[in-house]
Design a protein around this nucleic acid. Sequence first.
DNA 1: TATGAATGAGTTTTCATTCAT
DNA 2: AATGAATGAAAACTCATTCAT
Lengths: 202, 202, 202, 202
Amino acid sequence: MTAGAARRRDGRIAQERMLEEAMTAIAEDGLATLTMSALADRLGTSGGHILYYFGTKDRLLLAALRWSEQQLAEERTALLGRRLTAHRKLALFLELYLPRGLRDPRWTLWIELWARIPSNEPLRAAQQEIDDGWQRDLEALLAKGVEQGRFAAGLEVPARASELLALLDGLSTRVVLGERGADRATSLERARSAAALLIPHL
Amino acid sequence: MTAGAARRRDGRIAQERMLEEAMTAIAEDGLATLTMSALADRLGTSGGHILYYFGTKDRLLLAALRWSEQQLAEERTALLGRRLTAHRKLALFLELYLPRGLRDPRWTLWIELWARIPSNEPLRAAQQEIDDGWQRDLEALLAKGVEQGRFAAGLEVPARASELLALLDGLSTRVVLGERGADRATSLERARSAAALLIPHL
Amino acid sequence: MTAGAARRRDGRIAQERMLEEAMTAIAEDGLATLTMSALADRLGTSGGHILYYFGTKDRLLLAALRWSEQQLAEERTALLGRRLTAHRKLALFLELYLPRGLRDPRWTLWIELWARIPSNEPLRAAQQEIDDGWQRDLEALLAKGVEQGRFAAGLEVPARASELLALLDGLSTRVVLGERGADRATSLERARSAAALLIPHL
Amino acid sequence: MTAGAARRRDGRIAQERMLEEAMTAIAEDGLATLTMSALADRLGTSGGHILYYFGTKDRLLLAALRWSEQQLAEERTALLGRRLTAHRKLALFLELYLPRGLRDPRWTLWIELWARIPSNEPLRAAQQEIDDGWQRDLEALLAKGVEQGRFAAGLEVPARASELLALLDGLSTRVVLGERGADRATSLERARSAAALLIPHL
DNA sequence: TATGAATGAGTTTTCATTCAT
DNA sequence: AATGAATGAAAACTCATTCAT
């Protein structure tokens, strides 16, 4: 391997460390206190260096979001590929989607970024794309369940998927904002019972 | 009426104009561009004067939110009091909750304020209180429907109310952020079909 | 006088003090070291306050330039109105135009701002307008000299005025940049002898 | 030729390409947007590499200026050596000096660098030297014209040369800044008519 | 020669908030 | 009640420059 390639690889690693640390910092202190220099301090590097890779803070946050969603997307793909009943897959899907708890960084970031979407076109595009991924995979999961006779034939797959995802978003918001009575366990329970009604198991 | 009372009443009106204009400005340009002095300009007054009434910008936003929710709460109360079938009331409830369209000011404000809740205790309390109002009234609506035999006896009212409200939040977010295929009409359709499944009409 | 008017007047005075101090600072240390906070320190105020009036540093510099040219324009008008021979007026015009010496703030500013004109439309407009003022007044001066029989009949007034002003610009640049042998006295001498050739005195 | 010499020559060529590209970039977008990495991109190399040759950006700009003036100096020398009347030579000198048009790179660079001269000693020295070259050659041209009886005996050569060059600077500034009515053709006309008055042709 | 990762000082700008009048 | 002058903290961002490889 040439020195150049090594250097390039170092950069890759550095970038990924930055994204990971950004998510961790958000999880610990919230996005409000995530300044460029605070993040640089955590990483033992300089603010300039972070922006050397990402250009602007907005783009850094977008990259962090994508990186975090990328990991979930992989878990989702793995989940879909497992040999499980559709019921079980759906249950795991719900668990995957909902926040791990108060201050879940992925959701903290989403809530913050929603506010910026109206004035940030690349962000809107990213959100659309990410949402589409969840919708597509949930539809696939449901369709397969129908095919296997686990869910009612005639299930309106896209509509039910949309509704379930909207419901999960609403529940997630509540969890991550710490609304009274909206911890992960309770919300998961709500998600499950609603799912059972929206997508009747035969 | 004394001069003092007249002045006080004038102050009330002035404050209400400020809140209304704040909501309009947010609907037009988003909260990010709503600075104190921009708002003052729209009102033909000074930033100092607005803060003379509200103390801080955060309190102004909170007041604006409360003012906007207050109006909805009144419509809600009126709705509950009307002589309509529970089905019909539920349908109107959904229409009342969902955003009027892209950039609906109430929802724009919510999305912006969610991001501030983690670091703003009074805001969290207000949110809780407002959400409780919707939950309480939806529960009442459902309970009455059960009582009248319109909804299944044994309906788990609080759970279904929570789920429906979470779903409405999720749908609303999408509408107000302008997600593809998430206009008011479509979202209302999703809300209706999901409601029919969550709260089976007999 | 109302308190409001007094406050407003205070603001005016404050703005003018800022412009004056900016020019003085430029004369003393050059434009390179004129940062917003350095200027604020000199004025015993805050950087925010300066930008409260001028919005951006660019606009502050433009205002400073205009303020400084305004003063010269008044001197120019006074000069044109005096009862002097055209010869004498022309001589005084040259003295007025040329820099007072190395680091003359007006010229320091011009040289700095020339570099910004290609990317700054308001600045270009201001420059055009200011140059037009000098051209117009020099043309008037020459025309009157012709009329009075002091300068050759048939003098091509606009052309000669343009040439003389261009020459003065060139000389001024050299003075203010401290080129060898280009002090004010020598440059004035060059200006005079060139003027005598371009605009023959009868 | 040794490998070392070949490499050295390659380096020369690389450096010259850099200078040329710098001038082109400046002509296209102005100096303000000429960052090291922008220039590196245009050249398909890295910022570090450019500085490997030039050390600092200031030195690069200075080298670019010198390189550009070097070419003009050669044209000037060629001009002086040609068998032409002094009148004709003077006319060609004016054409050589004035900018080719709006955004002429040599002049764009000059205007930008003037602003840096007060704080950059090597730059000042270079400017002096380059100006001296023009002055020296113009004096030689005029002196020869006098000698040949083309220009008035008794012509104060150094003074007239200074004045003409100052005038050319002033005209050039206007052309390159795009002042109204200051295109190359008009400015050349002004330069010619002023030259005819300053240096009377017998 | 050549790269590109890393630095970090330095500057403008924004805006809620205060307060004398 | 109303103004608007004044504050000042905070933060993003730029970019020439260095240096290990």
